[in-house]
Amino acid sequence: MTADRDPLPPEALDEWSAALADALHLEPADIRTALVLDLARDVAHGVARPAAPLSAFLAGLAAGKTGGDAASVDAAIRTTVALAADWAEH
């Protein structure tokens, strides 16, 4: 995406995320697009832009290792966002 284009809304990613979910053998209903995009935004602004995709991956990895259910995903995202907020105060 170039800098002069507006960012895509989360629903614009539906086709991609559905295709990726299928390829990864995940349930499309389990994909939390808005939460992950919010996490990426918060980390990019509070830590550094390159930390956003890494943080999203690590939060997903942690969620998978702790059960992979919605509560695990929410907990991993909350932890990541909280750390990014604290990190911004460094």
Rank of each mutant, 00 (worst) to 15 (best):
L37W: 07
G60E: 08
P53F: 09
E11F: 09
L39V: 01
R32C: 06
P10L: 13
P9S: 13
I31T: 07
I77C: 03
S72H: 07
T66E: 08
A85Y: 04
D86F: 06
G46Y: 09
R32D: 12
P7F: 08
L39E: 02
L61R: 10
A23I: 03
A82T: 15
A18F: 02
R5T: 13
G67P: 04
A21E: 04
A71S: 06
G46M: 11
T66R: 05
E89T: 10
R41Y: 00
E11P: 02
L24S: 04
A71G: 05
L20E: 08
H25A: 14
A70Q: 11
G68D: 10
A59D: 06
R32V: 10
D14G: 11
I31F: 06
A44I: 00
L20Q: 14
I77A: 03
D30L: 11
H45R: 08
A82I: 05
H45E: 13
P50N: 01
A48Y: 04
D74V: 02
L26C: 06
D74K: 05
G64N: 04
S72D: 09
A76N: 08
W16D: 15
S55I: 04
M1E: 07
A21W: 01
T79M: 12
R32L: 07
A19E: 10
A51D: 02
W16S: 13
A21R: 02
A40S: 09
D30P: 05
A12N: 09
R78I: 03
V73N: 05
P28E: 12
D22L: 11
H45D: 11
H25M: 07
A44Q: 03
L37A: 07
A82F: 00
D38I: 01
P53C: 08
R78S: 09
E27Y: 06
D30T: 15
P10T: 14
E11K: 06
V36T: 12
H25Y: 07
V81H: 00
H25S: 13
F57A: 03
T79N: 05
W16K: 07
D14N: 07
A62E: 15
A88S: 14
A56F: 04
D4T: 15
L35P: 00
V81L: 04
P7L: 05
A29F: 01
A62G: 08
D6I: 08
A62F: 05
L83M: 12
V43I: 08
L20F: 12
F57P: 00
P7K: 03
A23P: 05
A62C: 12
E27R: 14
H90C: 08
M1G: 14
D42F: 00
L61T: 10
A18Y: 02
P9A: 15
L58A: 09
I31V: 15
F57L: 12
A23S: 14
V47A: 12
D14I: 06
D30H: 11
W87N: 07
R78D: 15
A34P: 01
D6Y: 07
T79D: 11
H25Q: 14
L8C: 08
G64L: 04
G68L: 11
A76V: 06
W16T: 14
A75L: 13
F57S: 02
